[in-house]
């Protein structure tokens, strides 16, 4: 669906709302907020794992949007542009807070391999088919912050490693290794949960 035609409200296309918001029309801005709030909030929530922070960052992202919408030239889809802005807000704010949320070690430490993974009875033990959304969401929330951010950006939001590297100021190789570690960690967490569940039965 093209932006020009996408209706975000009765009789209001996204393109019209953007143009009106550029000239300071608060109602058009409200329509844009209403249409995009869930995606932006979910993104912030997954990146931070914390509802209060996610609300603050959503607010910051839309404040930025209001200030910067005049610079939107339509080179990319509006939603892509807005989400990128939200990601930058989250990363900037987390850095500002002195990075208790993202440990620099964790973010930038060179890759240390843990050696090959060996599973006893690996065949019976694969995850396929056993993970539901709730479990996965919880496991993501339990990831260390650096892993969580890279995983959310790449696997949930669909950013490429070069984009993540640029946004986070790290190398592409670093983004790839963080993602890999995040997935391995999730695998451990999900198996742990499954085992616990089985023990309780």
């Amino acid at each position: 669906m093209t932006q020009a035609k996408k209706l975000i409200a009765p009789g209001l296309t996204e393109a019209e709302a953007i143009e009106r918001a550029k000239s300071g029309d608060a109602e058009a801005f409200e329509a844009l907020y209403a249409f995009h709030k869930r995606r932006v909030y979910s993104l912030c929530l997954r990146m931070t794992g914390n509802t209060a922070q996610a609300e603050d960052f959503t607010q910051d992202a839309f404040m930025q949007l209001y200030r910067k919408i005049g610079t939107f030239r339509g080179e990319s889809a509006f939603s892509t542009w807005l989400h990128r802005m939200a990601v930058n807000v989250v990363l900037m704010q987390l850095r500002k807070k002195g990075l208790p949320e993202i440990s620099l070690d964790e973010m930038l430490e060179p890759l240390h391999e843990d050696g090959p993974r060996r599973d006893i009875g690996a065949r019976d033990n694969v995850l396929a088919g056993s993970v539901d959304r709730v479990n996965l969401e919880r496991a993501i929330a339990d990831l260390p912050p650096g892993y969580r951010i890279v995983f959310t950006l790449h696997d949930v939001e669909g950013y490429e490693h070069n984009e993540i590297a640029e946004m986070m100021g790290c190398s592409i190789g670093n983004s790839k290794s963080q993602l890999h570690k995040a997935r391995l960690k999730l695998r451990d967490l999900l198996k742990l949960r499954r085992a616990e569940k089985a023990n309780r039965r």
């Binding site: 909030y41 993104l43 995850l127 996965l136 696997d155 949930v156 997935r183 999730l186 695998r187």
Partner: peptide, 20 residues
């Protein structure tokens, strides 16, 4: 297989919550 499964499941996660 597990890692690919996790990545694929993650792609299916959709925004679930509205902000307050």
């Amino acid at each position: 297989q597990d890692l690919k499964y996790i990545a694929n499941q993650a792609k299916l996660l959709l925004p679930m919550h509205d902000p307050s």
